[in-house]
Design a protein around this nucleic acid. Structure first.
Length: 839
RNA sequence: GGGGCGAUGGCGGAAUCGGCAGACGCAAUGGACUUAAAAUCCAUCGGUGGCAACACCGUGAGGGUUCGACCCCCUCUCGCCCCA
């Protein structure tokens, strides 16, 4: 029997009659109370399982963008859900405060970057608070604070001590406008422009600090222990670009060794010429006098081009002959050495063996300059002839013209899985001509920036003792405030009259500080560790906090960081693990990426396009809860979508309807509900709870909101049918508010605490459990298909057997009509979903 | 050139395992309430035909597998993103 007894009202609903939903006032009220009560303070509690939810920290540009809200709000809602599930949740927030934009703004407006950053952080902190997120502000960190960058410097020293930081001269990408070097990934597009300002990038030779990220290349390719999107794993894998092959030593006729890397050692006998990068160190030495002028001219024009232009497969191949020859070590053939811009100094060894018969670019080059083409892999059923081939044959076949290997099968497999490659590599190794080798596209991480607004590199140069780290008890190396940060082409710290002067930590004699600062990706590689104990001064973090909270359980943020921040932070963690500072192989166990909110014109939001949506304005108009709900509802979170300023009305309407349902007086002469109504209400409540729980787990935020909207509609109908005041109604309202709490924390708190009169705070309640019996359907309706078209439907008990469903279907009107007395050829009862008949 | 993601009503999207396509919401249209507006409520809302019951078509295009395909396979088109 259903219990239809009305429960007593604990609140005087008549006084609430005229209260309309005024989100702005109640949101401010609850935010203040939560803060006063330290409701979101996350402290170690060994009695509860921990959950470290992390969302990427913003750069303090000075204005919180709708994109920030889009990234953070669902992350916050999920963190709140986890908390209600019984986890001890830490959800911290901070600012990635060093970097070019502050310095550029400072240059433009004459405001000190430190002052500007401080103001921006202040402003954004206020904006972030209006979101009503469960950030634990006591864990806030700002990467430009000395007690943060002290440890950034300290980490640099640890990496230096491990031999992972080193100096080298290299041609770096240089932005002439920002006067700084750029990492490879900060140079954008085919035009090769600066990520920050759009200025075309030029090359410049400088001695700089690098981190040996390549040492971890292989380990970074392993993702077995982490739940990261396939997309990110693929991006990182391609970025690292591991290829197996062989390193082979050719020699010039005069005896200089030339090391080359090839992924196709099985085609060595087809190497009919060599190509050097124009920057290859041997070029000047080997070029014969009669070719000098042409080579010099070619080098000059190549230097003007970008690597990307030079490497494009569809680009017209150019090159010049040096006049020199090399000896192919496998067959003693004398082959010409050319230089061409499609060979890059930055990949492999800067020299290649050219096998025109089996490489597309070599083929184009050979045809253009009339060089010999000798096929060495014969595909089945075709005879390749060098003079008449129309394209390079890059696939499987049988080795020919290859001395001892004629007849060996070459498959399409890469590396040592290919029997031809394996056989040749072993042969090379026996003869000492070459060896198995692995090459990576991945480069070491260039850390140095010739800028002011970054963490100083804590290194000292002494003429006698070279480079040594600043003693750890002297950290941090503080950024001087009185600096001319305006660009001069040199690092601003170098221009400072006294800052760089210090003494050598080894001999105490006068010495010079490193005046470059660190790439800001260094700061963001470890911020998740500083959140553990932002005020700790005996180390970068407190071990007790580390042991409890780490690793990060869920990490959310944009996919644009796939090959930058997300790879750097993995490298960093592995390096620190090897230094005994951290534990485990990975810092972040689960990663999820949100999509992008575009402007209403379907274009990327930007000030210049005038399509920027400001969250502050929306909050003022609709309240934070509505903005939160809409951001979760209006698109698939991982896809993103263009903004629709009319669509938010729907979310506003939903919350107003929630408010009305919970605050309206129940109609005086309401009817007594039937047990059917109450049974149905419970079923819908528990079905919705099951769905919402599932969707929170799986980051499917948009369907959470639609499920809650549907249940609200159902509750209105149930109330109409007299359900209000029953125990079932009581349960429904309680579960509804709990499900609402992570999405719209303010209205949920108000309704929970002040309307339902339940104990504060709703955010400390347990997530309800699904009553499976209540959620179960009594009867199910199945469509009946005849020859693939739905012709009718039958209603059967939910636990009906397949046989019962079959007879019910055969007895139905529709089936009788279509069968016209004949026997069906086939009857399929599909998993209690549908009946399909073939006649 | 390589890799990835995607394409469902006017729009955003839903469809959990191959099983009723279009949930939920926006916009639109008609109506109720109102001096009026806002808010709210009710109804209609993929296309074609039909008074209607209903029939046929319909998830970028073409083909395939299957009793059954938005979903799996093949070919293609377009769009976006990342990389070179």
């Amino acid at each position: 029997m259903e219990d239809t007894k009305k429960v007593e009202n604990t609140t005087d609903i008549t006084t609430k009659r005229d209260r309309s939903y005024q989100p702005q006032a109640l949101e401010k009220k609850w935010q203040a109370k939560w803060e006063a009560d330290k409701l979101y303070r996350a402290v170690i509690d060994e009695t509860r399982p921990k959950h470290y939810a992390l969302t990427m920290l913003p750069y303090p540009s000075g204005d919180l963008h709708i994109g920030h809200w889009y990234a953070m709000v669902p992350s916050d809602a999920r963190a709140r859900f986890k908390r209600m599930q019984g986890y001890n949740v830490m959800f911290p927030m901070g600012f990635d405060a060093f970097g070019l934009p502050a310095e550029n703004a400072a240059i433009k407006e004459g405001v000190h970057p430190m002052k500007r950053t401080r103001e921006n952080v202040e402003r954004m902190r206020t904006q972030l608070r209006s979101m009503g997120a469960m950030f634990d502000w006591e864990r806030e960190t700002v990467s430009s604070d000395p007690d943060y960058y002290k440890w950034t410097e300290w980490f640099f020293i640890q990496l230096f001590k491990m031999g992972l930081a080193y100096r080298k001269m290299s041609a770096v990408d240089w932005c002439p406008k920002d006067n700084t070097t750029l990492a490879r990934e900060q140079v954008i597009g085919e035009e090769r422009v600066c990520e920050r300002c759009g200025t075309p990038v030029i090359k410049k030779e400088l001695e700089q600090w690098f981190f040996r990220t390549t040492k971890y290349a292989d380990e970074l390719l392993h993702f077995d222990d982490i739940d990261w999107p396939e997309r990110v794993k693929t991006l990182q894998t391609n970025w690292i670009g591991r290829s197996e092959g062989a390193s082979v030593i050719f020699k010039t006729e005069t005896g200089d060794p030339i090391e080359i890397f090839t992924t196709r050692p099985d085609t060595l006998w087809g190497a009919t010429f060599m190509v050097f990068s124009p920057e290859h160190p041997l070029v000047d030495k080997i070029t014969t006098p009669e070719h000098k002028a042409a080579v010099e001219e070619y080098k000059t024009q190549a230097a003007r081009q970008s690597d990307i232009e030079r490497e494009a497969v569809d680009k017209e191949k150019t090159g010049v002959f040096t006049g020199a020859y090399a000896i192919n070590p496998v067959n003693g053939e004398r082959i010409p050495i050319w230089i061409a811009d499609y060979v890059l100094m930055s990949y492999g060894t800067g020299a290649i063996m050219a096998v025109p018969a089996h490489d597309e670019r070599d083929f184009a080059f050979a045809r253009k300059y009339g060089l010999t083409i000798i096929p060495v892999i014969q595909p089945e059923g075709v005879e390749l002839i060098g003079e008449t081939m129309e394209a390079a044959h890059e696939h499987e076949g049988v080795m020919i013209n290859s001395g001892p290997f004629n007849g060996t099968r070459a498959t399409n497999d890469k590396g040592m899985k290919n029997p031809a490659i394996k056989a040749v590599v072993e042969w090379l190794e026996e003869r000492g001509i070459g060896k198995r080798a692995v090459n990576y596209r991945y480069r070491d991480w260039l850390i140095s920036r010739q800028r002011y607004w970054g963490a100083p590199i804590p290194m000292i140069y002494c003429d006698v003792h070279g480079w040594n780290p600043v003693p750890e008890d002297q950290l941090p190396v503080m950024l001087p405030e009185d600096v001319e940060w305006k660009p001069t082409g040199e690092s601003p710290l170098k221009q400072h009259p006294t800052w760089k002067n210090t003494t050598c930590p080894v001999c105490g004699e006068p010495a010079t500080r490193e005046t470059d600062t660190m790439d800001t990706f260094m700061c963001s590689s470890w911020y998740h560790l500083r959140y553990l104990s932002p005020h700790y001064d005996k180390g970068p973090f407190d071990d007790a906090e580390y042991n409890y909270w780490m690793p990060v359980d869920t990490y959310t943020g944009g996919i644009e960081h796939a090959t930058m921040h997300l790879l750097y932070t993995r490298f960093f963690h592995k390096a620190l693990r090897d230094a005994g500072i951290t534990e485990g192989g990975e810092p972040m166990m689960q990663l999820r990426n949100q999509g992008m909110v575009l402007g209403e014109d379907n274009e990327k939001m930007s000030k210049s396009r005038g399509n920027v949506i400001a969250p502050d304005v929306l909050v003022e108009r609709y309240g934070a809860d509505t903005v939160r709900a809409y951001l979760m509802f209006f698109a698939r979170w991982d896809m993103g979508a263009p903004w629709d300023s009319q669509g938010i009305e729907g979310s506003a309407r939903w919350l107003r309807r929630v408010w009305t349902l919970f605050t309206d007086m129940v109609p005086a002469e309401s009817q007594t509900p039937t047990s059917e109504v109450l049974r149905n209400l419970r079923r819908r409540v528990h079905q919705t709870l099951r769905r919402v729980t599932h969707d929170f787990e799986n980051f499917e935020f948009n369907t959470i909101i639609s499920a809650l909207m549907e249940l609200l509609n159902e509750m209105y109908r149930a109330r109409e049918a007299g359900a209000a005041g029953t125990t079932q109604w009581e349960e429904a309202t309680e579960i509804y508010i709990k499900m609402l709490a992570p999405v719209a924390p303010h209205i949920a708190e108000e309704l929970w605490t002040n309307q339902l009169g339940k104990p504060y705070s709703v955010h400390q309640q347990q997530w309800p459990k699904v009553d499976e019996a209540a959620a179960k359907e009594d009867t199910i309706e199945l469509p009946v298909q005849i020859n693939g078209k739905v012709r009718g439907r039958i209603t059967v008990a939910a636990d009906a057997s397949e046989e019962e469903i079959r007879s019910a279907a055969l007895a139905s009107e529709a089936v009788k009509k279509y069968l016209e007395g004949k026997e069906p050829k086939k009857i399929i009862v599909a998993n209690k979903r549908l009946v399909s008949l073939v006649v």
